[in-house]
Simulated assay, not measured.
Amino acid sequence: MRALVTGAGRRLGFYLCQQLLALGWQVVGQYRREHEGLASLRAAGATLIQADFEREEEVRALAEQVVAGPLDLLIHNASAFEPGAPTLAGELAQFERFFRVHMQAPFLLNRLLAERLAASGRGSIIHLTDIYIHAPPPDLAAYVATKAGLHSLAMSAARELAPRVRVNTIEPGPILFLDEHGEAWRQQVLARTPLGREGGLAPIWQAVQLLMENDYMTGASLRVDGGRALATF
Rank of each mutant, 00 (worst) to 15 (best):
P137M: 09
L153T: 09
A157G: 08
T193N: 04
A162S: 15
V189R: 05
L112I: 04
E171K: 08
A154C: 07
D179P: 02
V165T: 11
M212N: 00
G182P: 00
L161C: 10
G219V: 08
G196Y: 11
A207F: 15
A207E: 07
R164A: 12
M212E: 02
Y216H: 11
A154F: 00
L210F: 11
I170C: 05
I204W: 11
G226L: 06
A157I: 00
E213P: 15
L161K: 03
G219A: 08
L190Y: 12
D139I: 05
P194T: 02
D139A: 10
G199H: 07
L178V: 00
L190P: 09
P194K: 03
L150R: 04
L140Y: 06
G199S: 10
L210R: 14
Y216E: 01
V208Y: 14
S156N: 07
A148R: 10
A202T: 12
H181A: 08
L210W: 15
L176W: 07
E198N: 03
P194L: 04
T193V: 13
I125V: 06
R223P: 14
M217E: 01
P136L: 00
A145S: 15
G173K: 03
L153D: 04
Q188V: 02
V144Y: 01
L211M: 09
L150G: 15
D139L: 11
Q209R: 15
H127L: 09
L117A: 03
L178W: 06
Q209G: 00
I204M: 14
R164Y: 01
N214G: 03
N214Y: 04
D139W: 13
A154G: 15
R122Y: 13
G226D: 09
D130H: 01
V167L: 03
Y132N: 01
S156V: 04
A207D: 01
L140R: 09
V189Y: 07
A114Q: 03
L176C: 08
L178H: 02
P194H: 11
H181R: 05
Q187V: 11
S221A: 15
G182M: 13
P172G: 05
R159A: 13
H127F: 11
T169D: 08
T146H: 04
P137R: 12
V167Q: 02
R186W: 01
V144K: 09
W185I: 13
E115W: 00
A118H: 07
R166S: 01
S152A: 14
P137I: 04
V224K: 12
G173D: 03
A158H: 09
S124Y: 04
A114M: 01
P194R: 07
R116D: 06
D139M: 12
H127N: 07
T193W: 15
L211F: 10
L201I: 07
A135V: 03
S120K: 08
V165R: 00
A207C: 05
T129P: 06
L113C: 06
I170W: 13
A220E: 04
W185M: 13
G226F: 09
Q206T: 06
P163T: 11
P174I: 13
A141V: 10
K147S: 03
Y143F: 12
P174M: 12
L150P: 08
P138C: 04
A142L: 05
I175G: 14
A119V: 03
R164H: 08
S124N: 08
R186A: 12
Q187G: 05
V189I: 15
S152G: 14
T193P: 11
A142H: 10
W205G: 00
I204C: 06
E213I: 05
P163K: 07
D215N: 06
A184T: 12
P172A: 08
